[in-house]
C-alpha cells in the first residue's frame, strides 16, 4: 500500500488501529497465558536459534507485543500532535 493509502486507512479518526491492537493483544494473551500455549506453543522441538520451541514461542510473542505497542504508541502520538495542530 502506498504512503497515501496508509494515511487514509490509519487516519486520526480511524478505529482500525484500535481494533488491530486489541485483537493482537487478545491473541497474545491467548497464546502466552491461555490455552493457545498448550495448542500451538508447548512442544520442545524444533529448536529455534538453540532454544526449545516452547521458549522461542514466548520470546517471539514478547517481540511481537513490543512491535505492536511501538506502532500503536506512534500512531497515538501522531493523532495527539495533529489534534494539537488544528
Amino acid at each position: 500500500m502506498s504512503p497515501a493509502g496508509l494515511q487514509r486507512v490509519f487516519h486520526r479518526r480511524s478505529k482500525l488501529p484500535h481494533v488491530l491492537f486489541a485483537l493482537h493483544s487478545a491473541l497474545a494473551t491467548l497464546c502466552v497465558v491461555g490455552p493457545g500455549y498448550k495448542w500451538w506453543g508447548a512442544s520442545a522441538q524444533p529448536f529455534v536459534l538453540g532454544l526449545p520451541f516452547s521458549l522461542a514461542w514466548a520470546v517471539g510473542w514478547l517481540i511481537s507485543v513490543f512491535a505492536s505497542l511501538l506502532l500503536y504508541e506512534r500512531w497515538t502520538r501522531h493523532c495527539e500532535d495533529s489534534e494539537r495542530g488544528e
Partner: peptide, 8 residues
C-alpha cells in the same frame, strides 16, 4: 508462564 503474565 512468568514471561506470559508479565508481558500481557
Amino acid at each position: 508462564y512468568v514471561i506470559g503474565y508479565g508481558l500481557v
